[in-house]
């Protein structure tokens, strides 16, 4: 697939995932499963922008790892805060 076609398809996919995310926010019952879906969607969208829009997939390794790392850590912390929120609250209580 050409780079241009990849950009076009990714744009449509990212918009579709955004609309799906909005639907989840409005309609789905809150819970761990929904949190995991939201976190995975966040991770996927970020990775696609970093790799293909930002073109870091084939660029400097340090920059690629730092930017990709953002979308490993934040989705993971999103799920962990749901699972271990009490522990985090205790840890951060002065």
């Amino acid at each position: 697939m050409s780079h241009e076609k990849l950009l076009d398809r990714l744009w449509l996919l990212l918009v579709a995932l955004t609309l799906g995310g909005a639907w989840i926010g409005e309609a789905a019952e809150p819970g761990l499963a929904v949190t995991i879906i939201v976190a995975l969607t966040m991770a996927f969208k970020g990775r696609m922008v970093v790799d293909h829009f930002m073109e870091l997939k084939t660029a400097n390794r340090t920059l690629r790892n730092l930017m990709r790392g953002f979308f490993y850590v934040l989705p993971a912390v999103t799920v962990l805060t749901t699972l271990f929120g009490d522990w985090l609250a205790k840890l951060t209580t002065l």
């Binding site: 955004t18 995310g21 969607t41 922008v49 970093v50 930017m67 934040l74």
Partner: peptide, 13 residues
């Protein structure tokens, strides 16, 4: 990218 984190955290979750 920053907004792609803000949106789920503030509007969806």
């Amino acid at each position: 990218l920053a907004w792609l984190v803000i949106f789920p955290l503030l509007y969806v979750l």
